[in-house]
C-alpha cells in the first residue's frame, strides 16, 4: 500500500518532467534540462549526506572529475560522447573510491574539512595545469565533437530527454538503493554507527560503497553537463559547487529521494528571480543556508514526512 503510494509519487514526478517538455517555453526548457542534470549531482550528494549521514564539503571534485575526464577526452582525443560519458562516470567512481579510502578514516567535522581540502587541492590543480585545462576560462567543446549517431547534442529536444533519462536512472538507483539491504545498513550508520558495528557490519565498507556511488552519480552528472552544454571550466570544481549540492539537498530535504531536484529547482529559480533585484546570488544562497539551519533543518520533504507523509522514502 505504502509501497504503491511512493512508487506512484516518484513515477508521477518523472511523468510530469516528461510531459513538461511539451509545454515549457524554450528558455525554461533549457533551464529544466540543466536542473535535471545538476539534480543527478544532488542525488549523488544526498546518498552520502542524507542516507549515510556523512557531510562532505568537497563534492565538487567528483562533479569536476567526471566533467574533465569526459570533456578533455572529447576535446583533445576526439573520443565519442557515449564512451566519454562512461569514461567520466568511471573516473569519478574510481576517484571517489580512492578519496574514500583515505577520508573515511575521519568522521564529523574532520570529514567535512578533509573532503573540502581534497576538493580545494583539485581545484588548484586544475588552475595549475592551466595549459591543458585553460583554468577559470575553461574549454568550449565544439559541436562537431558532440554527435551521437548523427544527432547533435546541441539539439534541445534530444538534450532534454537525455537529461530526463539520466535523472530517471539516478532516481531509480537511489530509490532501489535505500530499499535494499545495503540501504538499510547505510541509514542505520547515519543513525548510530557504533551500534551497526556491534551488529556485525564492517561499516567502513558500507561507507566506502556509499561514497563510491555518490561519486559515480556526481561524475555522471559532470560528464553529461560537459557533453550536453559543451563547456568544461574550473568553476565547477570550486567550493561553491560543493556548497550548492549541500544547499539543494538541505532545502529539498536530506534523506528524501525527490529532495535534491526540488531543492535544485527552487534554488535555481530563487537565484534567477532575485538576480533581477540584487546583483548577485550570494545573499540568496547565504540567507537560505542560515534560515535552513535555524528554522528548517529537515528541508521541505523532510518536514512533510515528519508531519504527514511518514511513508515518504
Amino acid at each position: 500500500m505504502e509501497r504503491n503510494r511512493s512508487l506512484a509519487l516518484h513515477g508521477g514526478a518523472l511523468l510530469i518532467l516528461f510531459l513538461l517538455q511539451f509545454v515549457l517555453p524554450p528558455y525554461h526548457y533549457t533551464n529544466f534540462t540543466r536542473i535535471m542534470v545538476l539534480a543527478v549531482y544532488g542525488i549523488g550528494y544526498n546518498i552520502l549526506i542524507g542516507y549515510t549521514g556523512l557531510l562532505s564539503l568537497g563534492h565538487a571534485m567528483f562533479l569536476a572529475s567526471g566533467m574533465y575526464a569526459a570533456g578533455l577526452a572529447v576535446h583533445y582525443i576526439g573520443v565519442d560522447p557515449v564512451s566519454a560519458f562512461v569514461l567520466g562516470s568511471v573516473a569519478a567512481l574510481a576517484f571517489a573510491t580512492a578519496v574514500g579510502l583515505v577520508a573515511l578514516r575521519t568522521t564529523g567535522v574532520s570529514f567535512m574539512i578533509v573532503t573540502m581540502m581534497f576538493s580545494q587541492a583539485c581545484y588548484l590543480l586544475i588552475l595549475y595545469f592551466n595549459e591543458v585545462t585553460r583554468g577559470d576560462e575553461g574549454i568550449a567543446i565544439s559541436e562537431a565533437a558532440r554527435q551521437i549517431a548523427g544527432f547533435s547534442l546541441t539539439n534541445p529536444i534530444l538534450r532534454y530527454n537525455l537529461a530526463l533519462a539520466l535523472f530517471a536512472g539516478a532516481l531509480i538507483l537511489c530509490y532501489a538503493l535505500i530499499r535494499s539491504r545495503v540501504g538499510r545498513v547505510l541509514i542505520a550508520i547515519r543513525e548510530n554507527e557504533e551500534r551497526v558495528k556491534m551488529l556485525g557490519y564492517h561499516t567502513f565498507r558500507y561507507k566506502l560503497l556509499a561514497l563510491a556511488l555518490s561519486g559515480l552519480l556526481s561524475g555522471a552528472a559532470g560528464a553529461s553537463y560537459a557533453l550536453m552544454f559543451g563547456y568544461v571550466g574550473a568553476t565547477f570544481a570550486a567550493i561553491e559547487y560543493s556548497i550548492f549540492a549541500l544547499l539543494w539537498v538541505l532545502l529539498g530535504g536530506a534523506g528524501t529521494v525527490l529532495g535534491p531536484i526540488i531543492g535544485a529547482l527552487l534554488m535555481f529559480y530563487l537565484v534567477e528571480w532575485t538576480s533581477d533585484v540584487t546583483e548577485s546570488y550570494r545573499i540568496v544562497v547565504g540567507a537560505a543556508l542560515v534560515l535552513l539551519t535555524l528554522f528548517f533543518p529537515k528541508g521541505i520533504l523532510g518536514t512533510l514526512r515528519e508531519k504527514r507523509l511518514r511513508w515518504l522514502p
Binding site: L55, L57, G108, V109, M112, I243, L246, L250, T278, E279, S280, R282, I283, V285, G286, A287, A288, L289, V290, L292, T293, L294, P297
Partner: peptide
C-alpha cells in the same frame, strides 16, 4: 539558537560568509 551544534554551525557560517561578502559588495 542551535546550541553550537558542530555541523549546523559549519553550514550556517558558510551562509554568513556569503551574506557578509554580498553586504561588502553592496
Amino acid at each position: 539558537r542551535f546550541n553550537y551544534q558542530p555541523e549546523a554551525t559549519i553550514v550556517a557560517t558558510i551562509g554568513l560568509l556569503y551574506i557578509i561578502q554580498q553586504l561588502a559588495l553592496e
